[in-house]
Nucleic acid binder design. Structure first.
Length: 421
DNA sequence: TCTGGGGTCCTAGGACCC
DNA sequence: TCTGGGGTCCTAGGACCC
């Protein structure tokens, strides 16, 4: 019987901020999405104040001021670096490891004795070496490990560590009956609602449901979730992350944008970011999608969504080629007179570099281009993103995002590095 | 005034083929 | 009178995740 543990960082982004600001210990913290739009992370103290996840910040701004909540813009350079460090430490405690998201990792623990002690030492190790508090959930399937992690978080008595094995079958049922079905991994809002009409309200109800009926009413994914709740392994540990099949780079603007040049500079920037991600996984894309849209929340504004896909003659990972295609797409979909909120580039039909089908009648791209890209990536890796970039990114910079409360990039920028007195 | 930015997988239905 | 059936591929849309 395999044994999985899910280890995740508590209120990860908020904990990253606190790791460098001991004065924030015990204080409520919220971290905002790009453009300071929504709340994406809350410390336990902030949750206790009743701040919900994903609410628009403007709705709670006053309340935050009244209660002295520390508010941060998202600082992905910091969170990404902290995540890497945390994953390395967690990986050292597992037999195999899957990095599932920025703040979650599955590890396998088959054959390790005295797991309660082991998991407790794991938590202490991560806290000491990275400064991030974590929870550990253990189960015989990934879904059960996820749910155990939920228990470890929700019930203070667990002290951040929980395994289903530690309870008798009777107590396991009692606990499952106290968990809402929507808290099970893979059961979202829509499926919860429908399950509710079928009389299935708790994790226990779902575990005991008829898989054939579930398959009929939903699909195989939900059927697998039921099996996993019953200890039948359907989801394997993915220790190597597969290449992305699509790459998106998009952003909302801090202020609405009407003119073509500003949009073009944003699209150029996103195209370059997307191409960079593509090169990181040694892939090339055949299709370049471009989208622009107005702000749907402003109901009295006239609305428009433009969307187009431009095929490339050769699959490419060249920033200039992809940007050129994206700008051609933008010219095709741009309509004057609208005020745009968001623009993005999507790369699809992605495959490994160098395995492209060749076209007899079209000359091959210049092989020296790949070297130019490699140099650009190396320079940008060493001296910071954007050190070398295409001129078209610089036409207008009137689209930058709002980041009013970003903390220093403590661990990745020399000029912002922490000083200890 | 102010509302994120990524991803994946599955299904149904239509086009098309033999 | 009677008008097949099996298969693949593609796309759009819907659901989920963090």
């Amino acid at each position: 019987m395999p044994l999985f543990a899910l280890v995740d960082g508590n209120s990860f982004y908020a904990s990253c901020e606190r790791a460098f600001r001991p004065d924030l210990i015990g204080r409520p913290i919220v971290v905002l999405s790009n453009n300071d739009g929504c709340v994406v992370a809350r410390s336990a103290e902030a949750k206790a104040l009743g701040i919900k996840g994903f609410v628009p910040f403007f709705e709670i701004r006053d309340m935050c001021e009244r209660h002295g909540v520390a508010v941060f813009s998202s600082n992905y350079a910091l969170y990404g670096d902290m995540s890497k460090r945390m994953m390395v430490v967690i990986g050292g405690w597992g037999i195999e490891q899957e990095v599932y998201s920025v703040d979650e990792s599955f590890i396998t623990l088959d054959g390790i004795p005295n797991l309660k002690d082991y998991a407790t030492r794991l938590r202490a190790d991560v806290l000491q070496r990275v400064g991030i508090p974590t929870c550990v959930g253990i189960g015989t399937t990934k879904t059960l490990a996820k749910l155990a992690n939920h228990v470890g978080k929700k019930f203070p008595k667990a002290e951040g560590v929980f395994s289903w094995d530690w309870l008798t079958a009777d107590w396991q049922d009692k606990l499952m009956a106290r968990i809402e079905v929507g808290d099970v991994w893979g059961i979202g809002r829509r499926i919860s609602e429908k399950l509710g009409t079928m009389g299935i309200h708790t994790a226990l109800d779902l575990q005991r449901s008829d898989p054939r009926e579930i398959k009929r009413s939903f699909n195989v994914v939900v059927e697998r979730t039921v099996a996993e709740l019953n200890g039948v392994n359907c989801l394997a540990l993915e220790d190597v992350s597969p290449d992305k099949q699509q790459i998106i780079a998009s952003r909302s603007f801090a202020e609405l944008v009407g003119d073509f040049d500003t949009l073009a500079s944003a699209i150029s920037h996103h195209a370059c970011r997307a191409a960079e991600k593509l090169r990181q996984q040694n892939s090339a894309a055949r299709m370049v999608g471009v989208s622009i849209c107005t702000n749907p929340f402003r109901e009295r504004d006239s609305q428009y969504t433009g969307w187009i896909v431009i095929p490339l003659v050769h699959p490419s990972a060249d920033s200039a080629v992809i940007t050129h295609a994206a700008l051609a797409g933008l010219r095709a979909i741009y309509r004057k007179g609208y005020r745009y909120k968001k623009a993005g580039v999507i790369l699809t039909e992605i495959g490994p570099q160098g395995l492209e089908q060749r076209d007899l009648f079209v000359p091959l791209p210049d092989p020296r281009r790949a070297k130019v890209m490699a140099v650009m990536d190396r320079v940008n890796a060493e001296f910071g993103r954007g050190t070398l970039r295409l001129a078209s990114e610089q036409l207008q910079r009137g689209w930058a995002m709002r980041q009013e409360q970003r903390s220093p990039r403590w661990t990745t920028h020399w000029e912002e590095i922490i000083t200890v007195r």
